[in-house]
Design a protein around this nucleic acid. Structure first.
Length: 493
DNA sequence: ATAGGGTTAG
């Protein structure tokens, strides 16, 4: 008999394995330590032994279990081996991918499900897919899905869909849109609040975050957000209060909160304390490692930053775009020129990561400090950022100590071409001429600068910015009693 | 079976 009713279109094998599985190898070591995963695997065996291997409900639960334990490869394998995955199985596997930060892959499966199997999304699917879109910053598709959620009736009064929408708009940088969805919600919970606060964090409105944090129902999940705000404000004192609350409430081995603590303490100068927390963490992911690398790097401890970077690789965690920013920054600020060159090459050769503007900036800084002005110049010229004024400006700064007039002239002129209003190009070039006794040329540059009306932009000191009264106000007013033990706070629920 | 948190150069 013809079985067309049961034919289901499978996603390409390349999507199921080649692309996804290798990328997640690094997580396996960490997940193996989770007892829940071990239990889950045992249960899986029991399921098969008792002949429930073809029960979609049970398999859905298993797919979800692997997803929650950062084993998206196992989720996919199970899914691929199913004879007739129903719509719920698709949703489970999409959410498993989203949970493991495989957003693009989750989206691919979602569109595949829709196009080839004719399944329409429901509230559950919308939640996961909107999360994926938000993390990828795909505003256009996000809006499309928002419209679809409204027309299909899954939007109104569905706290999952609405919270995901708040999150999606916040992550795409549209805080106002995010706020408007939030305001229209009939019922709000800590997830909705947290999503909104994340948007304010991204905009740099850290004071707002701390203020609102005191008004909302607080769960351990939201500690990550407020710690990010603390780091943004460099208020280590408030961060310590949050840390205490985390421990007091029985928080333990939460990789997100503890990574945020590592970052906060390191950013505020307590690198050794940060390192102690880092050392104690049984499960570390790439963000944890990155926090520690950049923590050492920012505190002038480049060698340790490099050491942590290498340890990360040894432990089987793949360095990403941000890891390389940290390690290159460490190299540039500690004169590790050869290492810097090595890592810059290794980034694309060994890890397939294309160097971005941040990496180029670090390299220009590194080479400039080492006096390798022409090498840095070539690097910029041969990159896709050859007309980026921030890179040329960094190089220009490095020329101050150089006596090579020809090169300095060339760079200053390039900079004048890109940014005619940038005063340092003129100042620097004039200084270079003076250093070699070309007084007339120096004077000409000064005249040209004045004729163009280029003026120095007023500077502001770091101290001035950070001793503003609003920050000290926050620190003093946020005593723990007020933050967490307020009766009203708890009855908010 | 479903939603939210943490890392990014000058």
């Amino acid at each position: 008999m013809h079985q067309s009713a049961f034919i289901y279109h499978r996603p390409p094998a390349s999507l199921l394995y080649a692309q996804i599985w290798p990328r997640n190898r690094p997580f396996c070591g960490a997940s193996a330590e989770l007892r829940e995963l071990h239990m889950g695997r045992c249960l899986h065996a029991v399921v098969i032994k008792f002949g429930f291997g073809f029960n979609n409900v049970i398999i859905s639960a298993l797919i979800d279990m692997y997803g929650r334990n950062n084993e998206p490869g196992d989720s996919l394998k199970l899914f691929d081996e199913m004879l007739e995955p129903d719509f719920i199985c698709w949703t489970s596997v999409i959410s498993a991918l989203t949970r493991s930060d495989l957003y693009a892959e989750a989206l691919q499966l979602f569109y595949f499900m829709h196009r080839h199997n004719g399944f329409s999304p429901d509230g559950y699917t919308f939640g996961s897919v909107l999360t994926a879109l938000g993390n990828l910053g795909r505003l256009k598709q996000g809006k499309e899905l928002h419209a679809k959620a409204i027309t299909s009736g899954f939007c109104k009064d569905n706290i999952f869909v609405e919270s995901s929408l708040v999150d999606m708009y916040a992550k795409c940088g549209l805080v106002d849109e995010s706020r408007s969805v939030f305001d229209q919600m009939e019922e709000k919970n800590s997830v909705s609040w947290c999503a909104l606060l994340g948007g304010y964090c991204q905009k740099g409105a850290f004071e707002t975050v701390v203020r609102l944090f005191r008004k909302m129902e607080v769960d351990l999940y939201s500690f990550g957000t407020v710690l990010r705000a603390c780091a943004g404000l460099s208020v280590v004192k408030l961060g310590k209060e949050v840390h205490c609350q985390y421990l007091k409430r029985g928080g333990w081995n939460d990789v997100v909160v503890e990574s945020a603590l590592v970052y906060l303490y390191a950013k505020c100068g307590s690198v050794d304390f940060a390192y102690r927390i880092f050392k104690k963490m049984p499960i570390r992911n790439s963000i944890t490692w990155n926090s520690m690398i950049s923590g050492f790097a920012q505190n002038g401890r480049g060698e340790e930053a490099v050491r942590i970077f290498n340890e990360m690789i040894q432990e089987g965690v793949k360095p990403n775009y941000i890891s390389f920013i940290g390690v290159l920054f460490a190299c540039s600020h500690n004169g590790l020129v050869d290492e810097g060159r090595k890592y810059f090459i290794s980034m694309s050769m060994d890890y397939g990561i294309k160097a971005g503007i941040e990496h180029h900036s670090c390299m220009v800084d590194l080479l400039g400090r080492a006096g390798e002005i022409e090498e840095a110049e070539d690097l910029i010229k041969n990159s896709q950022f050859s007309n980026d004024s921030s890179l040329w400006a960094a190089l220009l700064g490095a020329c101050t100590t150089s006596t090579n007039t020809t090169v300095a002239e060339r760079i200053a002129k390039k900079m004048m071409e890109l940014r005619p209003d940038y005063h340092l190009s003129y100042v620097l070039l004039a200084n270079v001429y003076r250093a070699v006794g070309r007084w007339n040329d120096a004077q000409k540059i000064w005249n040209r600068m004045q004729k163009k009306g280029v003026t120095k932009t007023p500077g502001r000191s770091w101290i001035e910015n950070n001793s503003s009264s609003s920050v000290s106000f926050l620190v003093n007013s946020n005593i723990p009693g007020e933050m967490y033990n307020d009766e009203k706070t708890h009855s908010f629920n």
